[in-house]
Design a protein around this nucleic acid. Structure first.
Lengths: 213, 213
DNA sequence: ACAGCTGTTATACGATTGAATAATTTCTAC
DNA sequence: GTAGAAATTATTCAATCGTATAACAGCTGT
C-alpha cells in the first residue's frame, strides 16, 4: 500500500555509508540516541530502511561506525593546522591545541549530546569500547608529545612518568571544560573559555601559555 | 493467561518510590538507558508495571527523579564528613573533597554510565536540564567557598572573578579525571588518581594540598 | 460486617522497533 | 542486447515499548 514508489537512485558505497553515518550523528545529536531508529536514520539519509542493512550488518555496527567517525572528527578539529605547524614553538602549538579544543565546533551542545549518547554504550559494548580507547589513546599520545616538547623548550627535563601524569591532568582539564561548557552553555557564555583553559593548563604545566611565542 | 497471580504486598509511598528509583538507576547503570523500560524497572523493583504509573505520572518523571537522586548522591559522597569538618583547615577540607571525588564510589564505571545516560537527555528535556543545572550549581558553590577559604588561609586575597574562574577550572579538572578514570578504569588502575588530582588542583590554585594541615 | 479508599496486579491497545525477506531497478560483462 | 550481479525499494514479522484501563486485595473507619 504505497503512495508512490521512491525513485531509484544509485550511489557509491562510500557516499552511502557516509550519508548514513552523518544522518545517524545528526539524529543522535538533535534528538538523542533513542531517536536514532533505523527508520529515522534512513529517512534522514533519504533512503529506505532496508538499505541500512545492505551496508551495515546491524544497527549496532552503524552506531559504532558513527562513533568512530565522530571521535576522529573531534581529534581532527582539536589538532588544527596551527597545532601541527612544526615551524612554530611547542608552546605555541600547545596553545593552539588548547584554544581549538575549547572553541566551536569542538565545544558544542550537540557534540556533547553525541558524546554522551555514545559513552553510555562504551561500558558494555566491546567494539564501542575499543573505538573509545583508540581515540582516547591517540589524542593522549599526540598531546604528550606536545607537552614534552614544550617543557624541554624551557629547559625542563621531565621523566616519562611525569609526562604521563601531566598529560592525564591536561587532558582531564580540557575534557572537563569542554564538557561543562557544552552542558551549560549559558553559564559559560560570558566566560572566555579558551583563556581560562590556557591559564589552567599553564598552571598545571607551570608554563606560560598566554604569551608563548 | 497468568501462571500465578503475584502475591499482594503493600508498602508506603516513600519505600516504593525509592525502590523504583533504585531499580531504575541499577538498570541504567548496568545495561544502559534503553534497557530501563517500565517493565524491566518494575521487575527489578519486584512490582508489576502498572504500579509505576501509580507513583509517577510518566516514565519521564521517574527518570528525572532518578537523576536528581543520583546527582544528590554524588555530591553527598564527594563532600564527606572530612570535607565538611569546620575544625579542619580549609586546605585539609579541600584535600578531602578532591580525594573523595576521585575515589570509589564516586569514581566508578557504573556511575559514569549513569551520568552519560542522563546527560544525553539534559540537552533537550527542560526538567532534566533544571536538575542538572541545580546539582552543578550546588556543587560549584560549595567548592567555591572551600577554594576561597583555602586561598585566604595562605594570605591570598582573590577577587570574586578569580574565585569563579578558579572554581571552574578545579571543577573541570575533577570532572575530567573522574570521567576518564570511569571510562577506562584499566588505564588508570595503576595510577594514584587522588594523588594526581591533588597535584593538579594544587597547581591550578598554586596551593600545596599534599602536605596541607 | 460492611463501605469505601488506596495500593497493587493483570490485561489490553496501538505504535514502534530491528531484522528478515521479497520485489524491483539499474549497471556491467559479455 | 541479454544474463546476471548489485543496489535499492517495499513488505512482512515477531517483539517490545509506554500508556491506559479493568480487576482485585487489603486496610480503615464506622
Amino acid at each position: 500500500m504505497q503512495d508512490l514508489r521512491k525513485s531509484f537512485h544509485r550511489d557509491g558505497p562510500d557516499v552511502r555509508r557516509r550519508a548514513l553515518i552523518e544522518a545517524t550523528l545528526a539524529l543522535i545529536s538533535e534528538r538523542g540516541i533513542e531517536a536514532a531508529s533505523v527508520r529515522a536514520i534512513a529517512a534522514r539519509a533519504d533512503v529506505t530502511q532496508g538499505l541500512i542493512r545492505h551496508y551495515f550488518s546491524s544497527k549496532e555496527e552503524l552506531i559504532a561506525a558513527a562513533y568512530a567517525h565522530h571521535m576522529a572528527g573531534l581529534t581532527e578539529h582539536s589538532f588544527t593546522k596551527d597545532a601541527l605547524d612544526e615551524t612554530g614553538s611547542a608552546g605555541a602549538r600547545l596553545r593552539a591545541l588548547v584554544i581549538a579544543s575549547l572553541t566551536a565546533p569542538v565545544v558544542d551542545p550537540g557534540a556533547l549530546a553525541l558524546w554522551a549518547g555514545f559513552m553510555s554504550r562504551v561500558q558494555r559494548d566491546p567494539e564501542m569500547r575499543r573505538i573509545h580507547a583508540e581515540a582516547y589513546t591517540e589524542f593522549q599520545k599526540r598531546c604528550a608529545l606536545l607537552i614534552e616538547a614544550a617543557l624541554r623548550d624551557v629547559g625542563r627535563d621531565p621523566t616519562p612518568d611525569q609526562i604521563k601524569r601531566l598529560t592525564f591532568a591536561v587532558n582531564a582539564l580540557l575534557d572537563g571544560l569542554w564538557l561543562e561548557a557544552g552542558a551549560l552553555p549559558e553559564v559559560f557564555e560570558n566566560e572566555d573559555l579558551p583563556q581560562l583553559g590556557l591559564e589552567a593548563v599553564g598552571a598545571v604545566l607551570r608554563l606560560d601559555l598566554i604569551t608563548a611565542e
